[in-house]
């Protein structure tokens, strides 16, 4: 069975029908780029995979943990799904190291030694081993986002969700974050990322999903469908952003 399996997923905000029946299979090691116009439901889809939004209809299974209609073991799901946010959302009162150690300590109840080792390993992975004791406000935006990636990785998730993680960054800081994501992809991490970086989506992703009005409008190999869109909506979209 696929690592992430979504079928017939619907989501409403009041009368606003935001996700209109999403079917999606994500295999181990997939790197999926989610694109689409603002308001097309990309974030909402990502957030349901992490249980941050409840499901009105349909089913979501991540590595054997299932959610139906918002029922299910949310915390078990979240231990398998890491999430990185556009606004970093680091905990301002904790150092970079403490940010990374928090969840392994309080959720997995690992020892201090173990969590410290994990934190060092993860900060090393994102190239910030020298920032263990720095507080978030002493770091640049790019560094903060890399700490946020390390924090999510520390739970050893099966899949990582990234929602426009470079959109809040100054242009010169974008690449250091993308480089970390690219390295994760190369190591075989399963990734689902909402992005506006089309080149990155094409070069790093193995699957591209174009969302439109709450549906998966077109999907496939990014090199193929970006070069030759099958629908006028994707053609319009790529013309607008590339």
């Amino acid at each position: 069975m696929s690592l992430v399996s979504i079928s017939g997923l619907h989501k409403h905000f009041g009368t606003n029908h935001v996700l209109k029946g999403i079917d999606l299979q994500v295999e181990q090691g997939d790197v999926i780029a989610l694109i689409g116009r603002s308001g097309s439901g990309k974030s909402t889809l990502l957030r349901t995979i992490n249980g941050l939004e409840s499901i009105d209809e349909g089913e979501l299974v991540v590595d054997g943990t299932a959610l139906h209609h918002g029922e299910g073991d949310l915390r078990a799901l979240r231990q398998k799904v890491g999430m990185v946010f556009q606004q970093f959302n680091l905990f301002p009162h904790l150092t970079a190291g403490q940010n990374v150690m928090l969840a392994p300590t309080v959720v997995k109840k690992l020892s201090k030694k173990e969590t410290e080792d994990i934190a060092k390993e993860m900060l090393l992975k994102v190239g910030l081993s020298d920032k263990f004791h720095a507080f978030p406000d002493q770091l640049s935006g790019g560094q903060q986002q890399r700490v946020a990636i390390a924090r999510a990785l520390a739970m050893r998730p099966k899949v990582m969700l990234c929602d426009e993680i470079t959109s809040a960054l100054d242009p010169e800081l974008v690449n250091e974050v993308l480089a970390v994501v690219q390295q994760l992809a190369a190591e075989g991490m399963t990734l689902i990322m909402v992005t506006h970086e089309m080149r990155f989506a094409r070069d790093v992703g193995n699957k591209l999903i174009f969302m439109h009005h709450g549906r998966i409008h077109e999907s496939g190999d990014p090199r193929i469908i970006l070069a030759d869109p099958q629908t006028p909506e994707l053609a319009n979209f790529t013309r607008a952003v590339m």
Partner: peptide
């Protein structure tokens, strides 16, 4: 975003309050 980050790390309500909300 602080609450969401804590939730995404699988912290429960009490843990979120103690470790993420209270001190700030």
């Amino acid at each position: 975003g602080q609450m969401e980050a804590a939730a995404s790390l699988a912290l429960n309500r009490a843990q979120t309050f103690v470790y993420v909300v209270l001190r700030p």
